[in-house]
Each structure stands twice: as C-alpha cells, then as structure tokens.
Nucleic acid binder design. Structure first.
Length: 227
DNA sequence: GCGACAG
DNA sequence: ATCTTGTCGC
C-alpha cells in the first residue's frame, strides 16, 4: 500500500506537540461506513531487552470476519514513551508494516485513542489522517476525560467527555470485564466507531482484527529473541 | 507540590 | 508496553 509523507517524524517532544496542533483541525469526525468490506487491526509489542518495537497488521473481511492477510515489521524504539505522544513512538514502525499489505483496507482499528486525547489527536487520528483511511481508536485504558459508571452487562456503554465534548464511548465488550474506550480516529463518527467495534467482537474483550494483530506481534517478538 | 498518565 | 504463576471468581 502506498503511504504519503504528511510530515517527517520528529525526535523532539516540542516538535511532536507542534505537529499535533498543526494537524488536529484536519480530522473529520463524520463519514459513512456503509460498504466497508475490509477491516485492518493494528497493534504492537515491545522487547525492552533489544529496545525493539514489533508492529502487526491483520486484515479481515467484514462483516464475516475471516482473515485475509497479515503482515509485520519491526524497528528500534527511538521516541520515548510519553502519554499523549504515542503516535511518535509507534507510528513509524506501524506505517512500515502497513506499507507491506497488498490491499488498502476500508477501515483500520488501532490499539490506542482517537479524539479521546488531550489535544484530540491520538494515534488513531494521526495515522488515519496520514493514510486518509477511516480509523477507530480502541484503547484498553483511559488517557483523559470523564465518564459515569457503567453497567456490568455486555454492550453497556457511557459517553466519555473530554473538555466538555462528547468524545467517545466507554464500552463493555464482555459482561463484568473491564470496558474498552472507543473513539473516532479520522473520517468516522462516534456511533460508527462503536458499531464497527461491536460487530468485530467474537467473545473476547478485544475486537478480532486487533486481537489477531496483538497475538501476531507478540509471536513475532518471541521468534526474534536470541536463544 | 500532588495525582494522572494510550503503549 | 514488560517483568511473571498460580489462583480466585464467573
């Protein structure tokens, strides 16, 4: 898949912030997800012994959820872990992996946040904008924002408010299991984001494409360890 | 100063 | 994210 260079990747944190402020207004949180036939799940694994990041992409047919392609790539972790600047640590290696897939997905689910972010420009927004592909952020933990308590049953969800704005949903994917946080990345609204994730559930907490990518990334990491 | 803090 | 086995609860 062809990937354009929206901007060079900084090694400096203040430059990273500038980039987020510079592109945040280009995020479109509307769009129709009708006709989505290919969904990619993306996740990474990290080996702190070699300081290496492993990124995996698993492409699934939708809505039947059969896997049709999987790719991975790796790279040294350069940028430090800074909450709110995640795209700058994982973005480069994720794009390397995405460049390897044959077919352009109609939507991508990223392990991280979209607009549920201090500057409304989380990893899902950032990479969705670079790729110009509808994207959704599905995080396992809250980064910012407030929300009410959520009922224990599967499917229960409440709005996540960031700076007085409805920015996503805290969504219970499994009964009595810690909810995930879903927010739009790019070219997608809150309802569509939630609906897509809900339709990708297969009995586990994490939507299938992302779960497959998570397991693949960890497998690649394991296979790359020195005996 | 203190607590919070995606992966 | 990762370090890590068994264990308690559904």
């Amino acid at each position: 898949m062809e990937i354009a260079d929206l901007h060079p990747w900084p090694e400096d944190q203040s430059e990273a912030l500038e980039i987020q402020y510079r592109f945040r207004d280009e995020i479109i949180t509307t769009g129709s997800l009708n006709g989505v036939g290919l969904i990619a799940g993306v996740d990474t694994a990290f080996d702190h012994n070699t300081d290496t990041l492993f990124a995996s992409v698993c492409v699934f047919n939708f809505p039947d959820l059969t896997e049709c392609e999987r790719v991975s790539d790796s790279g040294k972790a350069i940028f430090p872990y800074v909450p709110g600047l995640h795209a700058f640590r994982e973005g480069p290696v994720i794009l390397k992996a995405l460049a390897r897939i044959r077919t352009r997905p109609d939507l991508i689910i990223f392990a991280g946040h979209g607009i549920a972010h201090p500057r409304r420009f989380g990893l899902a927004c950032h990479l969705g904008l670079i790729l110009d592909i509808p994207s959704v952020g599905c995080a396992r933990k809250r980064l910012t924002g407030q929300h009410d308590e959520i009922d224990p049953e599967q499917g229960a969800n409440v709005p996540l408010i960031v700076d007085n704005k409805d920015s996503g949903r805290v969504y219970r994917t499994r009964e009595k299991v810690k909810p995930v946080i879903i927010s739009p990345g790019h070219r997608c609204g809150i309802n569509d984001a939630v609906n897509v994730v809900a339709k990708c559930l297969q009995g586990y907490r994490i939507p299938e494409p992302m779960r497959a990518a998570h397991r693949l990334a960890n497998r690649i990491k394991r296979n790359n360890k020195k005996p």
